[in-house]
Design a binder for these strands. Structure first.
Length: 160
DNA sequence: AGGTTGATTGTTGGA
DNA sequence: TCCAACAATCAACCT
C-alpha cells in the first residue's frame, strides 16, 4: 500500500525563491511532514475528501513517464523522471503546455465541485447522511455524469 | 515486512 | 498575502 505518497523533501529551489522565513520553515518541513504523516495514520481518513487534481505538469509528467521508461527501461529512480520531466517541461512552449493546462483546468473544476460536495457533507454529517443512499441509487442510471463529453478541439497549431 | 524517501512543478488551501 | 503541504510514481533503502 502506498500510504505515503507525498512529502517531497526537495525544495532546494524554494530556498532561493523564497526569501522570507526560509530557514525555519524549510528546515522544519521534513520534520513537520513526518509528524504530520504519523498523525494522519491516527486520524481517520476521509474517503470523501477529494484528492488534489494533477497539475498541468503532472499531467504531462504522466505521459512523459511512460515515454521515459521506454527510452530508459532500466531507470529505477523516480527522481530521474522527475528531473528529466521538469527540465523538458520548462523547455516546452506555452502552446505545448496548453493542452496539459486545459486538462488540468478541467480537473480543477471537477475538484472544486467535489470539494463543495465534501464541504456540504461535512456539515450534514451529524444529522442524517442519507446522501450516500440516494447517490448510490442513481449511480449506474447516469453513466458518467460529468464526463468530458465535450471534446475540446481547440488546437492552436501555429505554423509559420 | 512495511514504511519512507527521493525529484519534478503547479495548484490549492489554510494561516 | 504568502507559505507550506500535497498531487503521481516506483524501486530502493531503512527501520
Amino acid at each position: 500500500m502506498k500510504v505515503t505518497r507525498s512529502k517531497r523533501a526537495a525544495t532546494k529551489d524554494k530556498n532561493e525563491a523564497v526569501k522570507p522565513t526560509q530557514d525555519r520553515t524549510v528546515g522544519k518541513r521534513k520534520a513537520a511532514i513526518q509528524a504530520d504523516k504519523i498523525i494522519k495514520k491516527q486520524v481517520k481518513k476521509d474517503p470523501n475528501k477529494p484528492k488534489r487534481p494533477p497539475t498541468a505538469f503532472f499531467v504531462f509528467l504522466e505521459e512523459f513517464r511512460k515515454i521515459y521508461k521506454q527510452e530508459h527501461p532500466k531507470v529505477k529512480a523516480v527522481s530521474a523522471v522527475g528531473k528529466a520531466g521538469g527540465e523538458k517541461w520548462k523547455s516546452m512552449s506555452d502552446a505545448e503546455k496548453a493542452p496539459y493546462e486545459a486538462k488540468s483546468a478541467k480537473l480543477k473544476g471537477e475538484y472544486q465541485k467535489l470539494m463543495t460536495a465534501y464541504n456540504k457533507r461535512q456539515e450534514s454529517t451529524d444529522d442524517d447522511e442519507e446522501e450516500e443512499g440516494s447517490e448510490k441509487s442513481k449511480s449506474k442510471t447516469h453513466d458518467k455524469d460529468y464526463e468530458d463529453s465535450e471534446e475540446e478541439d481547440e488546437e492552436d497549431e501555429e505554423k509559420d
